[in-house]
Amino acid sequence: MRVGFVRRLRGGNVHIGLHPADANALPPMQPGQFVEVAVDKAKVLLNRPFSIFNSSPECLELLVKPLGRASAAIADYEEGDTLRVIAPLGRGFSLPEAPARVLLVGGGVGVAPMYYLARALNERGIRPVLVYGERTAPDPALKELLSRHAELHICTDDGSEGFHGFVIDHPAVTQGEYDYAKICGPEKMMKFMHNYIATNKNWDTEFSLENKMACGLGACLCCVENTTTGNRCVCTDGPVFNLTELPW
């Protein structure tokens, strides 16, 4: 695919837009699905999985945090460069019917699938609540995007913006009442949320996992998560799993 734009956001995230290399439209993609990207500039062997931040027939957008060699090298790409991408992959979030009260929780770069998910919910007449936790205040441009389709609440570890603390302690989580919750973020945060919701709430909840994977196609069996029905591939059986499937 051809790089259309690269926006280096405050806080280190990179927002990158990719256009199809040929005249063909991109295939339809579901919120919560992911793509595999060959990050050649990073000189790594395997492709890397990234959440779909947004997609249309003309453009696939990713939000990438530079955490490792490959994700850091995404910032080195410029308009006009090409990237090899396999998309879309995996099973995304289930989309409830309106009227429904939906909570979205994104921790760090776990917010990446939430924009596209919120957009899809809006199209179904649902305006979700999005609680977004970061170490420090996120880029205003990202905030503006996220608040288009959701009631946005920011939490920061350093108190530089919004609620000073973790997403799990935010009043929108502790005092809100929902029918559905969709959660993506660091493993520790997701396990806390799993425990909290399983114990205190009756929300139909899904988590999006990010296990290390090699093929992305369900062939190598490297990315498995231990579920209530045994080891299952995050790449093809997930990355989205229901709370009841995860024995956390």
Partner: peptide, 23 residues
């Protein structure tokens, strides 16, 4: 066979380690 627990894979210079364990 359920195979080995996660993590089962690590990328290394020009290669990868796996420990799927015949799932």
């Amino acid at each position: 066979r359920e195979g080995n627990p996660y993590p089962r894979m690590a990328e290394t210079p020009s290669g990868m380690l796996n420990a799927v364990g015949l799932q």
